[in-house]
């Protein structure tokens, strides 16, 4: 019962994070700022709900579902940043998006 309640709280927190991530995507007008809104969507909006699902499943003794949800959460945690790194690096390397302060220039490497 306690596990399921914690899981439910995590699911609701995930919904809130996803809504904020979506709002951020529209409100921020710069590519680099949108990346941060996307992080709120991936970590807050996917990692925590998956942990919540794992806890609810564990409460109902559905161990395979709990295990797969837990593993998916960890995989999201490890692999999600790779996409962000790739996008940010590509944009910064080719100087595609203007940014106010940029210390990552050709000379610094």
């Amino acid at each position: 019962m306690i596990l399921a309640s914690i899981g439910l709280i995590l699911l609701i927190a995930g919904v809130i994070c996803d809504v904020f991530g979506a709002i951020g995507m529209h409100r921020f007008d710069n590519f680099y700022l949108r990346l941060h809104a996307a992080t709120v969507g991936t970590i807050g909006g996917k990692f925590y709900p998956l942990i919540g699902v794992a806890l609810i499943a564990a409460d109902m003794r559905l161990w395979p579902i709990a295990g797969i949800a837990l593993l998916s959460a960890l995989l999201v945690m490890i692999t999600a940043p790779v996409g962000s790194h790739a996008l940010a690096f590509a944009a910064a390397e080719k100087n595609l998006v203007p940014i106010e302060k940029n210390e990552f220039t050709g000379d610094s490497r």
Partner: peptide, 9 residues
């Protein structure tokens, strides 16, 4: 990268 607000480039 996983903390919102900072991304490693």
């Amino acid at each position: 990268t996983n903390t919102p607000g900072t991304v490693t480039v």
